[in-house]
Nucleic acid binder design. Structure first.
Lengths: 236, 236
DNA sequence: CGCTTAATTGAACATACTCAAAATTTGTGG
DNA sequence: CCACAAATTTTGAGTATGTTCAATTAAGCG
Protein backbone atom coordinates (compact mmCIF):
# COMPACT_ATOMS: atom_id res chain seq x y z
CA UNK A 1 0.00 0.00 0.00
CA UNK A 2 1.50 3.26 -1.11
CA UNK A 3 1.58 6.13 1.32
CA UNK A 4 1.76 9.34 -0.60
CA UNK A 5 3.13 12.36 1.10
CA UNK A 6 2.99 14.14 -2.21
CA UNK A 7 -0.34 14.37 -3.89
CA UNK A 8 -2.60 14.99 -0.94
CA UNK A 9 -5.70 16.66 -2.24
CA UNK A 10 -6.64 19.84 -0.46
CA UNK A 11 -10.06 20.09 1.11
CA UNK A 12 -10.18 23.63 -0.23
CA UNK A 13 -10.28 22.35 -3.76
CA UNK A 14 -12.22 19.18 -3.17
CA UNK A 15 -15.08 18.94 -5.59
CA UNK A 16 -17.00 16.20 -3.89
CA UNK A 17 -20.48 17.59 -3.82
CA UNK A 18 -22.22 15.53 -1.21
CA UNK A 19 -19.52 16.00 1.39
CA UNK A 20 -20.41 17.28 4.83
CA UNK A 21 -17.51 19.66 4.52
CA UNK A 22 -19.32 21.66 1.88
CA UNK A 23 -20.76 24.04 4.40
CA UNK A 24 -17.40 24.91 5.94
CA UNK A 25 -15.81 28.32 5.63
CA UNK A 26 -12.44 28.69 3.96
CA UNK A 27 -10.70 28.97 7.32
CA UNK A 28 -12.36 25.85 8.65
CA UNK A 29 -11.45 23.93 5.55
CA UNK A 30 -7.88 25.04 6.07
CA UNK A 31 -7.96 23.61 9.57
CA UNK A 32 -9.38 20.33 8.36
CA UNK A 33 -7.04 20.02 5.43
CA UNK A 34 -4.12 20.24 7.78
CA UNK A 35 -4.27 16.54 8.06
CA UNK A 36 -2.13 13.55 8.64
CA UNK A 37 -2.23 12.10 5.22
CA UNK A 38 -3.93 10.52 2.33
CA UNK A 39 -3.77 6.84 1.49
CA UNK A 40 -4.58 4.46 -1.27
CA UNK A 41 -6.30 1.22 -0.45
CA UNK A 42 -6.57 -1.55 -2.95
CA UNK A 43 -9.77 -3.51 -3.32
CA UNK A 44 -10.17 -5.78 -0.33
CA UNK A 45 -7.76 -3.90 1.92
CA UNK A 46 -8.93 -2.87 5.35
CA UNK A 47 -9.02 0.82 6.22
CA UNK A 48 -9.60 0.21 9.91
CA UNK A 49 -10.57 -2.67 12.15
CA UNK A 50 -13.39 -3.01 14.64
CA UNK A 51 -11.99 -2.70 18.14
CA UNK A 52 -8.94 -0.66 17.21
CA UNK A 53 -8.36 2.74 18.64
CA UNK A 54 -9.05 5.60 16.23
CA UNK A 55 -6.27 7.99 15.27
CA UNK A 56 -8.55 10.10 13.18
CA UNK A 57 -11.39 9.93 10.80
CA UNK A 58 -11.47 9.17 7.12
CA UNK A 59 -12.99 10.96 4.20
CA UNK A 60 -13.32 9.00 0.98
CA UNK A 61 -11.75 11.13 -1.72
CA UNK A 62 -12.71 8.57 -4.29
CA UNK A 63 -13.82 5.03 -3.84
CA UNK A 64 -16.32 2.60 -2.37
CA UNK A 65 -16.19 1.13 1.10
CA UNK A 66 -18.19 -1.31 3.18
CA UNK A 67 -18.55 -1.01 6.94
CA UNK A 68 -19.17 -4.31 8.65
CA UNK A 69 -19.18 -6.04 12.00
CA UNK A 70 -18.30 -9.56 12.95
CA UNK A 71 -20.70 -11.80 14.82
CA UNK A 72 -19.55 -14.44 17.29
CA UNK A 73 -19.01 -17.17 14.75
CA UNK A 74 -16.91 -14.87 12.63
CA UNK A 75 -19.83 -14.25 10.31
CA UNK A 76 -19.80 -10.82 8.82
CA UNK A 77 -22.71 -8.40 8.72
CA UNK A 78 -22.44 -5.37 6.49
CA UNK A 79 -23.80 -2.42 8.39
CA UNK A 80 -23.62 0.27 5.74
CA UNK A 81 -21.74 1.50 2.71
CA UNK A 82 -19.87 4.68 2.03
CA UNK A 83 -18.82 6.18 -1.27
CA UNK A 84 -16.94 9.16 -2.58
CA UNK A 85 -17.24 12.20 -0.33
CA UNK A 86 -18.46 10.32 2.71
CA UNK A 87 -16.95 10.03 6.16
CA UNK A 88 -15.77 6.92 7.95
CA UNK A 89 -15.05 6.37 11.58
CA UNK A 90 -16.45 9.69 12.68
CA UNK A 91 -18.72 8.11 15.22
CA UNK A 92 -15.90 6.53 17.16
CA UNK A 93 -14.22 9.92 17.29
CA UNK A 94 -17.39 11.58 18.51
CA UNK A 95 -18.04 9.12 21.28
CA UNK A 96 -14.38 8.58 22.01
CA UNK A 97 -14.59 4.85 21.60
CA UNK A 98 -12.69 2.29 19.60
CA UNK A 99 -13.94 1.60 16.11
CA UNK A 100 -17.28 -0.07 16.23
CA UNK A 101 -16.91 -1.76 12.88
CA UNK A 102 -14.42 -2.64 10.19
CA UNK A 103 -14.08 -0.60 6.99
CA UNK A 104 -12.94 -2.39 3.85
CA UNK A 105 -12.31 -0.98 0.38
CA UNK A 106 -14.66 -2.49 -2.18
CA UNK A 107 -12.62 -1.10 -5.03
CA UNK A 108 -9.32 0.76 -5.21
CA UNK A 109 -9.96 3.82 -3.08
CA UNK A 110 -8.26 7.05 -2.22
CA UNK A 111 -8.98 8.01 1.36
CA UNK A 112 -7.95 11.10 3.30
CA UNK A 113 -7.16 10.86 6.98
CA UNK A 114 -8.28 13.83 9.02
CA UNK A 115 -6.84 14.54 12.42
CA UNK A 116 -9.16 13.96 15.32
CA UNK A 117 -8.22 17.22 17.00
CA UNK A 118 -8.72 19.36 13.91
CA UNK A 119 -12.07 17.76 13.33
CA UNK A 120 -13.19 18.33 16.89
CA UNK A 121 -11.93 21.91 16.77
CA UNK A 122 -14.08 22.73 13.80
CA UNK A 123 -17.00 20.85 15.27
CA UNK A 124 -16.81 22.88 18.44
CA UNK A 125 -16.59 26.25 16.78
CA UNK A 126 -18.84 25.84 13.78
CA UNK A 127 -22.48 25.23 14.50
CA UNK A 128 -23.43 24.69 10.89
CA UNK A 129 -21.00 21.85 10.82
CA UNK A 130 -22.47 20.32 13.97
CA UNK A 131 -25.84 20.43 12.30
CA UNK A 132 -24.47 18.63 9.26
CA UNK A 133 -23.02 15.93 11.46
CA UNK A 134 -26.30 15.65 13.31
CA UNK A 135 -28.16 15.23 10.05
CA UNK A 136 -25.71 12.60 8.92
CA UNK A 137 -26.08 10.66 12.14
CA UNK A 138 -29.83 10.93 11.90
CA UNK A 139 -29.81 9.51 8.41
CA UNK A 140 -27.48 6.69 9.41
CA UNK A 141 -29.67 5.84 12.37
CA UNK A 142 -32.77 5.84 10.25
CA UNK A 143 -31.17 3.50 7.76
CA UNK A 144 -29.88 1.23 10.46
CA UNK A 145 -33.32 0.88 11.99
CA UNK A 146 -34.86 0.18 8.64
CA UNK A 147 -32.20 -2.43 7.99
CA UNK A 148 -33.14 -4.04 11.29
CA UNK A 149 -36.78 -4.33 10.30
CA UNK A 150 -35.83 -5.72 6.93
CA UNK A 151 -33.65 -8.43 8.33
CA UNK A 152 -36.00 -9.28 11.13
CA UNK A 153 -39.19 -9.41 9.11
CA UNK A 154 -38.59 -9.85 5.44
CA UNK A 155 -38.13 -13.07 3.52
CA UNK A 156 -34.86 -13.91 1.87
CA UNK A 157 -36.18 -13.03 -1.54
CA UNK A 158 -37.37 -9.64 -0.38
CA UNK A 159 -34.04 -8.96 1.26
CA UNK A 160 -32.04 -9.91 -1.79
CA UNK A 161 -34.23 -7.69 -3.97
CA UNK A 162 -33.83 -4.86 -1.51
CA UNK A 163 -30.08 -5.33 -1.39
CA UNK A 164 -29.81 -5.07 -5.15
CA UNK A 165 -31.85 -1.88 -5.09
CA UNK A 166 -29.70 -0.53 -2.28
CA UNK A 167 -26.56 -1.15 -4.32
CA UNK A 168 -28.15 0.59 -7.25
CA UNK A 169 -29.16 3.60 -5.12
CA UNK A 170 -25.84 3.87 -3.41
CA UNK A 171 -23.38 3.22 -6.20
CA UNK A 172 -25.44 3.57 -9.33
CA UNK A 173 -25.42 1.76 -12.65
CA UNK A 174 -22.86 1.45 -15.41
CA UNK A 175 -23.14 3.44 -18.60
CA UNK A 176 -25.55 0.85 -20.04
CA UNK A 177 -27.94 2.08 -17.36
CA UNK A 178 -28.84 -1.36 -16.13
CA UNK A 179 -25.73 -3.09 -14.77
CA UNK A 180 -24.87 -2.52 -11.10
CA UNK A 181 -21.64 -0.59 -11.08
CA UNK A 182 -20.39 -2.34 -7.97
CA UNK A 183 -19.90 -6.07 -8.20
CA UNK A 184 -19.64 -7.99 -4.99
CA UNK A 185 -19.10 -11.63 -4.27
CA UNK A 186 -22.15 -13.71 -3.48
CA UNK A 187 -20.93 -13.98 0.05
CA UNK A 188 -20.75 -10.21 0.39
CA UNK A 189 -24.28 -9.82 -0.92
CA UNK A 190 -25.37 -12.37 1.63
CA UNK A 191 -23.54 -10.48 4.34
CA UNK A 192 -25.61 -7.40 3.60
CA UNK A 193 -28.92 -9.21 3.58
CA UNK A 194 -27.98 -11.44 6.49
CA UNK A 195 -28.28 -14.75 4.64
CA UNK A 196 -25.95 -17.60 3.82
CA UNK A 197 -23.89 -17.62 0.65
CA UNK A 198 -25.66 -20.66 -0.75
CA UNK A 199 -29.09 -19.21 -0.22
CA UNK A 200 -27.95 -15.97 -1.82
CA UNK A 201 -26.77 -17.87 -4.88
CA UNK A 202 -29.99 -19.80 -5.13
CA UNK A 203 -32.10 -16.69 -4.76
CA UNK A 204 -30.15 -14.74 -7.38
CA UNK A 205 -30.37 -17.74 -9.65
CA UNK A 206 -34.14 -17.88 -9.16
CA UNK A 207 -34.44 -14.20 -9.92
CA UNK A 208 -32.43 -14.79 -13.03
CA UNK A 209 -34.84 -17.53 -14.14
CA UNK A 210 -37.77 -15.25 -13.34
CA UNK A 211 -36.38 -12.56 -15.62
CA UNK A 212 -35.87 -9.98 -12.91
CA UNK A 213 -32.11 -9.87 -13.27
CA UNK A 214 -29.42 -11.32 -15.46
CA UNK A 215 -26.15 -12.73 -14.15
CA UNK A 216 -23.06 -12.21 -16.25
CA UNK A 217 -20.15 -13.44 -14.23
CA UNK A 218 -19.99 -11.15 -11.26
CA UNK A 219 -22.05 -8.44 -12.90
CA UNK A 220 -25.70 -8.18 -12.10
CA UNK A 221 -27.96 -6.65 -14.71
CA UNK A 222 -31.32 -5.38 -13.63
CA UNK A 223 -33.77 -6.42 -16.29
CA UNK A 224 -37.06 -5.66 -14.59
CA UNK A 225 -36.76 -2.75 -12.19
CA UNK A 226 -40.47 -2.57 -11.43
CA UNK A 227 -40.59 -6.25 -10.73
CA UNK A 228 -37.61 -6.00 -8.44
CA UNK A 229 -39.17 -3.13 -6.52
CA UNK A 230 -42.34 -5.14 -6.17
CA UNK A 231 -40.33 -8.10 -4.86
CA UNK A 232 -38.54 -5.91 -2.35
CA UNK A 233 -41.86 -4.90 -0.89
CA UNK A 234 -40.51 -1.55 0.19
CA UNK A 235 -42.48 0.51 2.64
CA UNK A 236 -40.42 3.65 2.85
CA UNK B 1 -55.88 10.97 28.91
CA UNK B 2 -55.68 14.02 31.08
CA UNK B 3 -54.10 17.12 29.68
CA UNK B 4 -52.77 19.17 32.51
CA UNK B 5 -52.20 22.83 31.94
CA UNK B 6 -51.44 23.22 35.60
CA UNK B 7 -48.60 21.20 36.99
CA UNK B 8 -46.10 21.46 34.18
CA UNK B 9 -42.70 20.79 35.63
CA UNK B 10 -40.10 23.40 34.84
CA UNK B 11 -36.91 22.31 33.13
CA UNK B 12 -35.10 24.66 35.47
CA UNK B 13 -36.00 22.50 38.40
CA UNK B 14 -35.95 19.14 36.68
CA UNK B 15 -33.84 16.72 38.65
CA UNK B 16 -33.47 14.05 36.01
CA UNK B 17 -29.80 13.40 36.06
CA UNK B 18 -29.15 11.66 32.79
CA UNK B 19 -30.98 14.23 30.72
CA UNK B 20 -29.25 15.86 27.77
CA UNK B 21 -30.54 19.16 29.10
CA UNK B 22 -28.19 19.01 32.04
CA UNK B 23 -25.51 20.94 30.26
CA UNK B 24 -27.79 23.83 29.38
CA UNK B 25 -27.40 27.29 30.85
CA UNK B 26 -30.20 28.79 32.85
CA UNK B 27 -31.25 30.97 29.93
CA UNK B 28 -31.33 28.04 27.54
CA UNK B 29 -33.36 26.02 29.96
CA UNK B 30 -35.76 28.89 30.12
CA UNK B 31 -36.14 28.83 26.38
CA UNK B 32 -36.73 25.09 26.38
CA UNK B 33 -39.16 25.15 29.26
CA UNK B 34 -41.31 27.57 27.39
CA UNK B 35 -43.11 24.64 25.96
CA UNK B 36 -46.41 23.54 24.67
CA UNK B 37 -47.35 21.25 27.48
CA UNK B 38 -46.98 18.21 29.57
CA UNK B 39 -49.12 15.13 29.27
CA UNK B 40 -49.90 11.94 31.06
CA UNK B 41 -50.04 8.73 29.11
CA UNK B 42 -51.48 5.62 30.61
CA UNK B 43 -49.79 2.28 30.05
CA UNK B 44 -50.38 1.20 26.50
CA UNK B 45 -51.25 4.63 25.16
CA UNK B 46 -49.46 5.91 22.11
CA UNK B 47 -47.39 9.07 22.40
CA UNK B 48 -46.87 9.44 18.69
CA UNK B 49 -47.37 7.34 15.59
CA UNK B 50 -44.91 6.39 12.88
CA UNK B 51 -45.64 8.44 9.79
CA UNK B 52 -47.26 11.36 11.59
CA UNK B 53 -45.86 14.82 11.34
CA UNK B 54 -44.00 15.99 14.44
CA UNK B 55 -45.18 19.07 16.32
CA UNK B 56 -42.33 18.90 18.74
CA UNK B 57 -40.22 16.50 20.69
CA UNK B 58 -40.87 14.73 23.92
CA UNK B 59 -38.91 14.46 27.10
CA UNK B 60 -39.94 11.73 29.52
CA UNK B 61 -40.38 13.40 32.87
CA UNK B 62 -41.14 10.06 34.39
CA UNK B 63 -41.97 6.77 32.80
CA UNK B 64 -41.00 4.03 30.40
CA UNK B 65 -41.58 4.01 26.68
CA UNK B 66 -40.96 1.68 23.78
CA UNK B 67 -40.15 2.89 20.29
CA UNK B 68 -41.20 0.49 17.58
CA UNK B 69 -41.78 0.15 13.89
CA UNK B 70 -44.30 -1.88 11.98
CA UNK B 71 -43.25 -4.34 9.29
CA UNK B 72 -45.38 -5.05 6.26
CA UNK B 73 -47.49 -7.75 7.83
CA UNK B 74 -48.25 -5.51 10.76
CA UNK B 75 -45.65 -7.26 12.87
CA UNK B 76 -44.03 -4.97 15.36
CA UNK B 77 -40.32 -4.60 15.93
CA UNK B 78 -39.17 -2.73 19.01
CA UNK B 79 -36.31 -0.49 18.00
CA UNK B 80 -35.31 0.92 21.36
CA UNK B 81 -36.52 1.93 24.78
CA UNK B 82 -36.52 5.22 26.58
CA UNK B 83 -36.89 5.95 30.26
CA UNK B 84 -37.08 8.90 32.61
CA UNK B 85 -35.04 11.85 31.38
CA UNK B 86 -34.72 10.67 27.81
CA UNK B 87 -35.86 12.28 24.60
CA UNK B 88 -38.33 10.97 22.06
CA UNK B 89 -38.90 12.04 18.49
CA UNK B 90 -35.88 14.29 18.36
CA UNK B 91 -34.53 12.65 15.26
CA UNK B 92 -37.60 13.45 13.21
CA UNK B 93 -37.26 17.07 14.29
CA UNK B 94 -33.60 17.13 13.35
CA UNK B 95 -34.08 15.71 9.90
CA UNK B 96 -37.42 17.40 9.37
CA UNK B 97 -39.21 14.18 8.61
CA UNK B 98 -42.32 12.51 9.87
CA UNK B 99 -41.93 10.22 12.86
CA UNK B 100 -39.96 7.20 11.89
CA UNK B 101 -41.42 5.00 14.59
CA UNK B 102 -44.25 4.76 17.09
CA UNK B 103 -43.75 5.56 20.78
CA UNK B 104 -45.93 3.74 23.30
CA UNK B 105 -46.03 4.11 27.08
CA UNK B 106 -45.04 0.90 28.83
CA UNK B 107 -46.29 2.19 32.14
CA UNK B 108 -48.13 5.31 33.20
CA UNK B 109 -45.82 8.08 32.06
CA UNK B 110 -45.51 11.81 32.41
CA UNK B 111 -44.11 13.32 29.24
CA UNK B 112 -43.18 16.92 28.44
CA UNK B 113 -43.67 18.28 24.97
CA UNK B 114 -41.00 20.70 23.84
CA UNK B 115 -41.58 23.06 20.97
CA UNK B 116 -39.61 22.29 17.85
CA UNK B 117 -38.60 25.91 17.35
CA UNK B 118 -37.32 26.39 20.88
CA UNK B 119 -35.34 23.21 20.65
CA UNK B 120 -33.79 24.18 17.35
CA UNK B 121 -33.04 27.65 18.69
CA UNK B 122 -31.03 26.28 21.55
CA UNK B 123 -29.38 23.72 19.33
CA UNK B 124 -28.23 26.44 16.96
CA UNK B 125 -26.81 28.72 19.60
CA UNK B 126 -25.38 26.28 22.10
CA UNK B 127 -22.52 24.13 20.92
CA UNK B 128 -22.33 22.08 24.08
CA UNK B 129 -25.88 21.06 23.49
CA UNK B 130 -25.14 20.06 19.91
CA UNK B 131 -22.38 17.88 21.21
CA UNK B 132 -24.74 16.21 23.65
CA UNK B 133 -27.18 15.50 20.87
CA UNK B 134 -24.38 14.15 18.72
CA UNK B 135 -23.31 11.83 21.50
CA UNK B 136 -26.85 10.65 22.01
CA UNK B 137 -27.26 9.92 18.31
CA UNK B 138 -23.93 8.10 18.29
CA UNK B 139 -24.99 5.91 21.16
CA UNK B 140 -28.35 5.17 19.55
CA UNK B 141 -26.66 4.28 16.30
CA UNK B 142 -24.22 2.02 18.02
CA UNK B 143 -27.02 0.21 19.79
CA UNK B 144 -29.04 -0.09 16.65
CA UNK B 145 -26.16 -1.67 14.78
CA UNK B 146 -25.53 -4.09 17.61
CA UNK B 147 -29.20 -4.98 17.63
CA UNK B 148 -28.94 -5.71 13.92
CA UNK B 149 -26.09 -8.15 14.45
CA UNK B 150 -27.93 -9.80 17.28
CA UNK B 151 -31.07 -10.39 15.30
CA UNK B 152 -29.26 -11.41 12.17
CA UNK B 153 -26.79 -13.83 13.75
CA UNK B 154 -27.88 -15.02 17.14
CA UNK B 155 -30.12 -17.93 17.99
CA UNK B 156 -33.47 -17.42 19.58
CA UNK B 157 -32.20 -18.48 22.97
CA UNK B 158 -29.31 -16.02 22.82
CA UNK B 159 -31.64 -13.24 21.77
CA UNK B 160 -34.10 -13.90 24.55
CA UNK B 161 -31.28 -13.95 27.10
CA UNK B 162 -29.93 -10.73 25.69
CA UNK B 163 -33.34 -9.12 25.77
CA UNK B 164 -33.77 -9.94 29.44
CA UNK B 165 -30.37 -8.44 30.17
CA UNK B 166 -31.25 -5.37 28.14
CA UNK B 167 -34.41 -4.88 30.16
CA UNK B 168 -32.40 -5.22 33.33
CA UNK B 169 -29.78 -2.68 32.15
CA UNK B 170 -32.32 -0.20 30.94
CA UNK B 171 -34.99 -0.33 33.60
CA UNK B 172 -33.33 -2.09 36.47
CA UNK B 173 -34.59 -4.54 39.07
CA UNK B 174 -37.16 -4.33 41.81
CA UNK B 175 -36.15 -3.88 45.41
CA UNK B 176 -35.57 -7.64 45.76
CA UNK B 177 -32.66 -7.07 43.37
CA UNK B 178 -33.61 -9.89 41.05
CA UNK B 179 -37.03 -9.23 39.54
CA UNK B 180 -37.14 -7.20 36.32
CA UNK B 181 -38.87 -3.97 37.18
CA UNK B 182 -40.58 -3.74 33.83
CA UNK B 183 -42.95 -6.51 32.95
CA UNK B 184 -43.90 -6.92 29.34
CA UNK B 185 -46.19 -9.32 27.58
CA UNK B 186 -44.63 -12.31 25.89
CA UNK B 187 -45.49 -10.76 22.57
CA UNK B 188 -43.64 -7.58 23.45
CA UNK B 189 -40.56 -9.52 24.47
CA UNK B 190 -40.73 -11.33 21.16
CA UNK B 191 -41.08 -8.01 19.34
CA UNK B 192 -37.78 -6.88 20.81
CA UNK B 193 -35.90 -10.05 19.98
CA UNK B 194 -37.61 -10.42 16.63
CA UNK B 195 -39.24 -13.78 17.31
CA UNK B 196 -42.77 -15.10 17.42
CA UNK B 197 -44.83 -15.04 20.59
CA UNK B 198 -45.02 -18.82 20.78
CA UNK B 199 -41.30 -19.28 20.45
CA UNK B 200 -40.74 -16.62 23.08
CA UNK B 201 -43.00 -18.47 25.48
CA UNK B 202 -41.28 -21.77 24.84
CA UNK B 203 -37.84 -20.26 25.26
CA UNK B 204 -38.73 -18.51 28.51
CA UNK B 205 -40.29 -21.72 29.72
CA UNK B 206 -37.12 -23.64 28.88
CA UNK B 207 -34.99 -21.10 30.70
CA UNK B 208 -37.28 -21.49 33.65
CA UNK B 209 -36.75 -25.25 33.62
CA UNK B 210 -33.02 -24.73 33.30
CA UNK B 211 -33.00 -22.59 36.42
CA UNK B 212 -31.86 -19.41 34.69
CA UNK B 213 -35.01 -17.49 35.42
CA UNK B 214 -38.24 -17.91 37.29
CA UNK B 215 -41.62 -16.93 35.92
CA UNK B 216 -44.16 -15.57 38.36
CA UNK B 217 -47.10 -14.43 36.34
CA UNK B 218 -45.80 -11.56 34.28
CA UNK B 219 -42.79 -11.01 36.45
CA UNK B 220 -39.48 -12.44 35.43
CA UNK B 221 -36.99 -13.22 38.17
CA UNK B 222 -33.36 -13.61 37.22
CA UNK B 223 -32.05 -16.56 39.20
CA UNK B 224 -28.72 -17.11 37.51
CA UNK B 225 -27.26 -13.90 36.15
CA UNK B 226 -23.97 -15.42 35.14
CA UNK B 227 -25.70 -18.22 33.34
CA UNK B 228 -27.91 -15.76 31.54
CA UNK B 229 -24.93 -13.68 30.45
CA UNK B 230 -23.26 -16.83 29.20
CA UNK B 231 -26.39 -17.72 27.25
CA UNK B 232 -26.56 -14.29 25.71
CA UNK B 233 -23.08 -14.74 24.34
CA UNK B 234 -22.41 -11.05 24.47
CA UNK B 235 -19.42 -9.71 22.62
CA UNK B 236 -19.53 -6.06 23.56
C1' DC C 1 -69.09 -13.29 37.03
C1' DG C 2 -68.63 -12.99 32.23
C1' DC C 3 -65.69 -11.26 28.71
C1' DT C 4 -61.50 -10.12 26.61
C1' DT C 5 -56.80 -10.59 26.40
C1' DA C 6 -52.72 -13.17 27.23
C1' DA C 7 -50.21 -17.48 27.93
C1' DT C 8 -49.53 -22.12 26.84
C1' DT C 9 -49.19 -26.44 24.32
C1' DG C 10 -49.08 -29.54 20.30
C1' DA C 11 -48.47 -30.77 15.63
C1' DA C 12 -47.49 -29.80 11.00
C1' DC C 13 -44.88 -27.15 8.08
C1' DA C 14 -41.77 -23.85 5.82
C1' DT C 15 -37.76 -21.66 5.40
C1' DA C 16 -33.23 -21.23 5.22
C1' DC C 17 -28.85 -23.35 6.93
C1' DT C 18 -25.20 -26.73 6.90
C1' DC C 19 -22.24 -29.87 4.86
C1' DA C 20 -20.15 -31.97 1.08
C1' DA C 21 -18.75 -32.22 -3.51
C1' DA C 22 -18.16 -30.51 -8.12
C1' DA C 23 -17.61 -26.88 -11.48
C1' DT C 24 -16.02 -22.52 -12.55
C1' DT C 25 -13.45 -18.37 -12.18
C1' DT C 26 -9.66 -15.70 -10.74
C1' DG C 27 -5.08 -14.80 -9.48
C1' DT C 28 -0.15 -15.70 -9.69
C1' DG C 29 4.34 -17.25 -10.72
C1' DG C 30 7.18 -19.08 -14.10
C1' DC D 1 0.70 -16.93 -22.12
C1' DC D 2 0.16 -21.10 -19.68
C1' DA D 3 -0.30 -23.98 -15.65
C1' DC D 4 -1.31 -24.43 -11.20
C1' DA D 5 -3.32 -22.96 -6.93
C1' DA D 6 -6.73 -20.62 -4.53
C1' DA D 7 -11.01 -18.68 -4.18
C1' DT D 8 -15.63 -18.46 -5.66
C1' DT D 9 -19.80 -20.24 -7.48
C1' DT D 10 -22.95 -23.77 -7.98
C1' DT D 11 -25.81 -27.85 -6.91
C1' DG D 12 -27.86 -31.48 -4.02
C1' DA D 13 -29.45 -33.65 0.13
C1' DG D 14 -30.40 -33.71 4.75
C1' DT D 15 -31.56 -31.12 8.72
C1' DA D 16 -32.34 -27.66 12.22
C1' DT D 17 -34.70 -23.92 13.73
C1' DG D 18 -38.63 -21.28 14.18
C1' DT D 19 -43.17 -20.22 12.38
C1' DT D 20 -47.93 -20.92 11.80
C1' DC D 21 -52.33 -22.52 13.00
C1' DA D 22 -55.54 -24.37 16.08
C1' DA D 23 -57.12 -25.43 20.46
C1' DT D 24 -56.87 -24.94 25.52
C1' DT D 25 -55.99 -22.84 29.79
C1' DA D 26 -55.18 -18.96 32.69
C1' DA D 27 -55.30 -14.19 33.99
C1' DG D 28 -56.94 -9.50 34.18
C1' DC D 29 -60.65 -6.34 34.23
C1' DG D 30 -65.00 -4.00 34.34
Amino acid sequence: MKKTGLDIPSCLECTNKNSVFCCLTKEDKEIITDRKGSNFFKKGQVIFYEGNHPHGLFCIHKGKVKISKLGEEGKEQVVRFAGTGELLGYRSILSNESYNATATALEDSHVCLISKDKFMDVLNKNNNFSMEIIKMLSADLRNSEQHLINISQKTVRERVAETLLLLKEKFGLESDNKTLSLSLTRREIGDIAGISTETTIRTLSDMNKDGLIELKGKSIIIKDMKGLIAEANILD
